[in-house]
Write a protein that binds this DNA or RNA. Sequence first.
DNA 1: TAGATCATACAGCTACGTTG
DNA 2: CAACGTAGCTGTATGATCTA
Length: 228
Amino acid sequence: MKLSASQLYDALVNDYGIIGETGNIKFTVKDLSILIKTKDSVGNLLQEWLKAWFTENSIDFVENNNSQSFPDFLLNPDDFTKGLLEVKSFDFDRGPGFDLANFDSYCNSLLTHAYRLDSDYLILSYQMIDGQIGIKNVWLKKIWELACPSSTYPLKVQEKKNVIYNIRPSVWYSTRSKFKPFNSKEEFLSALNNTRYQYPQTRFKNGHWLNKVLKNYEEYTGEMLVVE
DNA sequence: TAGATCATACAGCTACGTTG
DNA sequence: CAACGTAGCTGTATGATCTA
């Protein structure tokens, strides 16, 4: 059956009740079986488990055959411009350390696939205690509800030696975080555009970027966004 | 065309300043 | 003064591209 991202969230969190449940990772070679206590593989395995859960519950989805490219899942096999779903997970004790998207590829992809702006992010936080993985919380968010400003750029990015690599999330669930997420997709686009003006590598060729994205978005959705 | 290197995608660690 | 948040970093996998 076909579900929207929010119906899926409802099924997983409210009906199935995944929050508070625990799991573990066991690895076996020959007659020796061990419990994995490192966190490296938790994210991958949660996603793999989720895929099995979709199948078990007869939820329609298409998995991206190239696991490296965006997005992880398509919930609407008939229309690839809708139902884009990214799955993220993080260690609740460490905070969200994942990246929302690669800065350059995301900016470029919006020029021709502006509907990606409306992709849903399904986020699972876990806590690992002595090999037992507890699901602490689950969120369903849009990118502008995760991205936020920062002190260096209008958009929080992962910068390495003055080179921007990734768009990074705020600590959206915390009341103490200084930088709060944006309030709308327009605010997010504006921050992205202004970051491109401020960033030396994109500064001089940014002239038509925003207008092209807005035009492409209108072609796909019929909605003309107004960005200050 | 095989092997090297780059690019893109993923994740986690930690120093240090801030703050409740 | 412990906990939190930010910023900057390390690390792995793999597809794409370059080059000898």
